[in-house]
Design a protein around this nucleic acid. Sequence first.
DNA 1: TTAAAATGTGACTGACCGGTAACACACATT
DNA 2: AATGTGTGTTACCGGTCAGTCACATTTTAA
Lengths: 211, 211
Amino acid sequence: MSAKPGAESAKAEEVGKPRVRDRIFETASDLFYRHGIRAVGVDAIAQEAGTNKMSFYRSFASKDDLVAEYLRDQEKEYFAWWDEAIAPYAGNPRRQLEALFEAYLDLAKFKAKADCGCKTSRGCALGNAAVEIPEDNELLGGIVHAYKTEIRRRLRKLARELGAREPDTLGDALMLLMEGGYYTRLTYPQNTGPVAAIARAARVLIDAHLA
Amino acid sequence: MSAKPGAESAKAEEVGKPRVRDRIFETASDLFYRHGIRAVGVDAIAQEAGTNKMSFYRSFASKDDLVAEYLRDQEKEYFAWWDEAIAPYAGNPRRQLEALFEAYLDLAKFKAKADCGCKTSRGCALGNAAVEIPEDNELLGGIVHAYKTEIRRRLRKLARELGAREPDTLGDALMLLMEGGYYTRLTYPQNTGPVAAIARAARVLIDAHLA
DNA sequence: TTAAAATGTGACTGACCGGTAACACACATT
DNA sequence: AATGTGTGTTACCGGTCAGTCACATTTTAA
């Protein structure tokens, strides 16, 4: 099944062969995002990472432990993208919001690895996790909740800085657009779905709350 | 008595003990919606329905078979709600759209059984299924895709009847709101999330496309 | 009444789940 | 040479998954 990629011991370790833990994490993140959390077992992760289950449990206390780290990492990446998108327009909330929704259409590219091979983007890692996480899992559920709430806070804040009438309402409306974009991306390849209309819709909402 | 074997079952249904198949289907629908499809096994369904796995497989060829029926039934229910919401305003697409988004806030009540006990609504059954369905499952994936496309078609049609500029864009924007509402309902109890802003946002979008 | 249809029961398969134990091996430092 | 660390290997645990079997029982229709 898996032939060794010919990497020799000492040098390869430093250059192109990250520590087992990192390989496992990268592999798991990829598999979780593409196939969902429940659908990916620890054995599959270990094998795909070129190691075995025992090494998995030397690095992670449990699967949930890894999932929690995965979710936190996805959140970090997402807000990194966010900050990057609005950075060029600091002090101009209107431009920041527009930039955000225009960049949104390229988000799939930002996330997806080149060799993903998915026909459709898989939308929001955290949001999808909310579907799979059982109700009584407070650890994972809390991570998702905090993430969504931070998005909500940021959008409402931008709406306030914008000087919008009813900034909270505008922020929430914009959030609905974003979340809807993720959700529909699960079904429609890339930007062929309703998400194509997101930037214009955002602009319309913003204008209406400024008039 | 009549020789038709289907007629008698109606009696038992009324009395309070529906046929096993129906009990299984109702129970499964409830469990699938609340906990997700992957999280619910056939054994759990059978037990919760007061029967056993063998009776399950006498009624359904496979779990996927049941899931397909569940999804189709959810779609039917959803569009029944939709038609009911817009019926009073036939010929007035503007009022129909508004009614749709106002009724949306009560949708959770429409779906949820009284004894559900969920802290949060579970949003859209079909949309959530899209997260759990593996990419190569064309049967289930196709059902979800057809459902989303029908929503899109209906919203675009209403936007066209409305006489909106760029009706497809407006329809898609409204769809983003709807889908976003479902998605965020997974995380926020009932209407405490951004979904509370959905009716106003829809109105703003509609107005802007009419001006 | 009687036979057929519907349903219940428990055991079973083979695969997979998350997680663990015991041991072997390579290598880097000292 | 000795030691410790990181890793690989194999087998195993108890549990659950979807799905099937033979057979007993109840319900229903003729």
